[in-house]
Design a protein around this nucleic acid. Structure first.
Lengths: 200, 200
DNA sequence: CTATGGTGAGACAAAGATGTCTCACTTGGG
DNA sequence: CCCAAGTGAGACATCTTTGTCTCACCATAG
């Protein structure tokens, strides 16, 4: 029968399973437990030994997404320098998690009755605080609420992730597109000289 | 055989069922056929008489979304006047469909293998053409592609719809938030006087 | 009144996903 | 060498949703 002498390492890396699941569910949010298992290169039984069920898996993915978000928030040093620069750093740092965030973003639409994870509240607060800082410092316009700017940031991250995934956009342009639209918008402003930017 | 003559008026019109389904699936994208039926005030049997199955229902919703989109595109007169004004008109016109669009936007992530409905291509093309017109006219910046601006528009519409739905934003602010962020971005520009706007 | 046709309620099987279990196999350590 | 632990494969029951069907009900046209 199956004598695939697969050099099976003892503890199947739980983290590897999680990231495989994230990568797969990002592409196909309705993937089966079986598909997730195969995607991680393990059997459904083993997958079930690590995560009690699909719900537990999604919760773990949510925790992973929150952790990566907070990690990006830390790395972006939101309190340092101009707020707009902090936003740019944040988008760069959070880019690698944008696919997972897009998945969780839509998935969270289902958690109707349940209260959202406290972690998201903290993240929202930190990002909102950044936008508020930019407003108080005169950098950002004050007629768009920090809450909306935060929501828009996640929306644009998700749009960008989907666009890259569908092949309609290049991954390398991702941070530039997101951050430029978020900060500058579509309108051409006087201070828009062709600029120091080199999207290539 | 069955003349078009209607002896008993169908107490349920297909359009009402569609719109009920749209409203429900916007809130709970995984609602079952039974929930959809109850939401429309009809039985599951009757729902099946109108739509062969869940797939047919989603397809019909897609057609409805496309129709409403095209309708909004027509009403917005995208070829008239400044492109930025056309974008503003478009957002206003498309607002009522944004919930449905948000549902279809995420749902379409599942149509992996299948080619997307030709209607979306036409809509994308029309909106992209608007942004391109704005770029050629010097209104919009040229470093953000029309394709990305189009995608971002839908992303912001979805974000706005979800935000309104979750109660984190007021419906009346919806068009203003979306269009101002899309066109102007978060940065405060010199020409940003507090302005003629009255979001309250 | 009577006939017609749409409707609601419910039964039913089929399909898919899930959770649990057993068993044989492989690996690494004692 | 032998045992313990982790794994893969698969069987199995269960649950949910779906799609189909039947039958009684009722409103309306004739």
């Amino acid at each position: 029968m199956s004598h695939l002498g697969y050099c099976c390492l003892m503890a199947v890396d739980r983290d590897h399973v999680l990231r495989s699941a994230a990568a797969l569910l990002t592409r196909k949010s309705t993937a089966t437990m079986d598909e997730v298992a195969k995607g991680a290169g393990i059997s459904r039984a083993t997958l079930h030994r690590h995560f009690a069920g699909r719900d537990a898996l999604v919760r773990a993915l949510e925790a992973l997404g929150i952790a990566e978000c907070e990690s990006a928030l830390d790395a972006a040093r939101l309190d340092d320098g101009p707020a707009s620069d902090a936003v740019r750093r944040l988008v760069v740092e959070i880019e690698s998690a944008s696919g997972l965030l897009a998945f969780l973003y839509t998935e969270s639409q289902l958690f109707e009755g349940e209260e959202q994870h406290e972690g998201w509240t903290r993240i929202d607060d930190r990002i909102s605080a950044l936008f508020r800082r930019g407003q108080l410092g005169g950098e950002f316009r004050i007629d768009l609420t920090p809450a909306w700017l935060t929501e828009a940031l996640f929306g644009l991250l998700a749009s960008g992730a989907w666009m890259v995934q569908s092949g309609k956009g290049a991954p390398k342009d991702f941070p530039y597109m997101v951050v430029e639209l978020l900060l500058g918008g579509a309108l051409r402003h006087p201070e828009h000289d062709p600029g120091p930017h080199d999207p290539a």
